[in-house]
């Protein structure tokens, strides 16, 4: 097999699925990311340290453990999974939605950290000034805080997207490795390596991964620079 041959429909599907799963995972976790970043940066309450710990757990825990915990929690027999199934007929394990959830959770700490950093860098006196001009706290957030933390949101989204694209351990544990459903790029690559004669395909998938990641980085750099220039001064 020629490693430079065009990618096969199967590989193409893995790429398409990866992008799909990563985009969904980021889109769904984005509002939660902003909310949690804000709560951690701006509020003081008894359980704050615990919340901070839970959010950062996927960063230090082996991904397989995260996937296993998700399975325990959201499996058909799990406490949350049963409720989801009984009430909405939804079952997440072994579905692409489940893969997106696993990827989203693994990427969440990166997203929150980037947003929190940009929140901490905002001059809070600007928010006070907005209040004196008649803006309620929610309006201040929408018109001052959110636009000023935009660079951090962009960085957080790109980091989370890249992390979700590469997610392996939690995904394979929670959503398994089902072609066309949960076999994302890393999972496909892993499968190819396991298959005799799959080396060329694995190599092509690796190259595709590199290209996608570089593209994500370039976009993030470009956006962040533009936003930074807009906010300068």
């Amino acid at each position: 097999m020629n490693p430079l041959a065009p990618i096969t429909p199967l590989e193409w599907e893995a790429l398409r699925l990866s992008l799909w799963v990563a985009i969904w995972s980021v889109a769904v976790s984005l509002p939660f990311g902003v909310l949690i970043a804000w709560v951690l940066a701006r509020t003081e309450f008894p359980g704050r340290g615990l919340l901070n710990g839970i959010v950062h757990l996927p960063l230090v825990l082996p991904p397989v453990v995260v996937g296993y915990l998700l399975l325990v929690l959201l499996g058909r027999q799990g406490p949350l999974g049963r409720l989801l199934f009984d009430w909405f007929g939804v079952s997440l394990p072994f579905t692409w939605q489940g893969a997106a959830l696993a990827a989203g959770i693994m990427a969440f700490p990166l997203m929150v950290r980037a947003m929190r950093l940009s929140l901490d860098a905002i001059d809070r006196r600007l928010e006070a000034a907005a209040r004196t001009l008649g803006a309620r706290p929610v309006a201040v957030f929408a018109t001052v805080t959110l636009p000023l933390m935009a660079p951090g949101i962009v960085v957080g989204v790109i980091l989370a997207f890249a992390r979700a694209l590469g997610e392996f351990g939690a995904t394979i544990t929670f959503a398994a490795n089902i072609p066309g459903e949960t076999r994302t790029l890393p999972l496909a690559l892993y499968s190819m390596i396991q298959t005799p004669g799959g080396e060329a395909a694995a190599f092509r998938l690796a190259i595709v991964s590199v290209i996608v990641s570089l593209a994500a980085l370039a976009v993030s750099e470009l956006l962040a620079r533009r936003l930074q220039a807009r906010l300068a001064g």
Binding site: D123, R125, L126, A128, A129, A130, R131, T132, L133, G134, A135, R136, T143, V144, P147, L148, R230, L231, A232, G233
Partner: peptide
């Protein structure tokens, strides 16, 4: 009263214009 309902204009030493 919260600041937004006091209707007092405030000019700060450092201006505090919204940079964006």
């Amino acid at each position: 009263l919260p600041p937004e309902r006091r209707r007092l204009g405030y000019v700060f030493q450092e201006g505090r214009l919204f940079p964006h």
